[in-house]
């Protein structure tokens, strides 16, 4: 009896092996050609390696250009020279202030202005998104000033507020206010009415609607606005420091340019690039921490 069952089982196994019918979902034993839907554009494929190779190529080209004397060091200093100059400035300071003091002066201006701009622009933008009167009144001055290049009204700031920190911080605040304010408005506009209706039928008061629904709904757009604002902020900061300042990375660049110290100019440019890149990266980190749901609803 047991022999018979065994042989039957055996035979069944053989049949199975012969026909080769897969018993389970096929796991890949032999190499197969996997396929996916044809995509268009980059479609999420990684670009980091290409970017890295490009960066190395640019550095190499820079090194080779100066190594073989293709361009005068007056226009393009060697990479080693820039590094040495950075060390010198770090050790001895530049134009009567240490590198830390220059950097702190720039950071202080932009961070103070960013704090004021964020603190003002978010409530104003949200209010303009929900209130017809607020939108009507505030649109006029904002739409007038924000397309202006900030440097065009810097002289006015200096006449009104003097040459000190106040004029620069005010200029930066104005430059950074508009993008955040506009993005907060866009965030309110993108808010689906069902979300508001759902909250109201759950008993939300007007204030609770604002704090629990409107503000968090607009937060992704607001953070995008802050990132744009910081980009504008760095540009405006350096320009403002070029014109009227005795401290700051922008001043350092301007002062070095007057002595044709191209290597110092390069040091300044790299410091600003690092700062601007870091601030954008920080906002991105804040984005992943605060709005992890973005693009996933």
């Amino acid at each position: 009896m047991s022999e018979i069952t065994q042989s039957i089982v055996l035979r069944a196994d053989q049949v199975h092996a012969q026909t080769g019918t897969p018993a389970r979902a096929p796991s890949v034993a032999r190499p197969v050609r996997t396929v996916e839907m044809t995509s268009f554009g980059i479609a999420g494929r990684p670009t980091a390696v290409i970017s890295l190779v490009t960066a190395v190529a640019i550095l190499l080209a820079w090194w080779a250009t100066s190594r073989f004397g293709l361009v005068s060091p007056l226009f393009l200093p060697a990479p080693a020279e820039v590094v040495t100059q950075f060390a010198n400035i770090y050790r001895d300071g530049y134009a009567g202030a240490s590198l830390g003091e220059h950097l702190f002066a720039s950071l202080f201006r932009i961070l103070t202005a960013a704090a004021i701009a964020i603190g003002l622009a978010i409530p104003v933008g949200l209010l303009m998104g929900v209130s017809r009167v607020a939108k009507g009144v505030l649109d006029t001055p904002i739409e007038f000033y924000w397309p202006l290049p900030p440097l065009s009204y810097l002289p006015l700031m200096i006449i009104w507020l003097g040459i000190g920190e106040t004029s620069k911080i005010t200029l930066l605040t104005l430059a950074m206010f508009a993008p955040i304010c506009l993005s907060a408005q866009a965030g309110v506009r993108a808010l689906p009415i069902e979300r508001i209706n759902a909250a109201r039928s759950l008993g939300a008061s007007r204030f609770q609607l604002f704090t629990d629904i409107v503000f968090p709904s607009a937060l992704p757009e607001i953070l995008t606005g802050i990132r744009i604002a910081l980009g504008i902020g760095w540009g405006t900061l350096v320009a403002a420091e070029l014109i009227a300042s005795t401290r700051g990375i922008g001043f350092m660049i301007m002062s070095a340019a007057q002595f044709l110290a191209t290597d110092v100019v390069f040091v300044g440019i790299f410091i600003i690039a690092a700062c601007a890149f870091s601030s954008a990266a920080i906002v991105r980190l804040v984005e992943t921490a605060l709005v992890p749901w973005k693009g996933r609803t």
């Binding site: 069902e194 979300r195 629904i213 968090p216 709005v291 749901w293 609803t297």
Partner: peptide, 8 residues
């Protein structure tokens, strides 16, 4: 009909 849950 459309879910109106708050994603955050």
């Amino acid at each position: 009909q459309k879910d109106t849950l708050l994603p955050w």
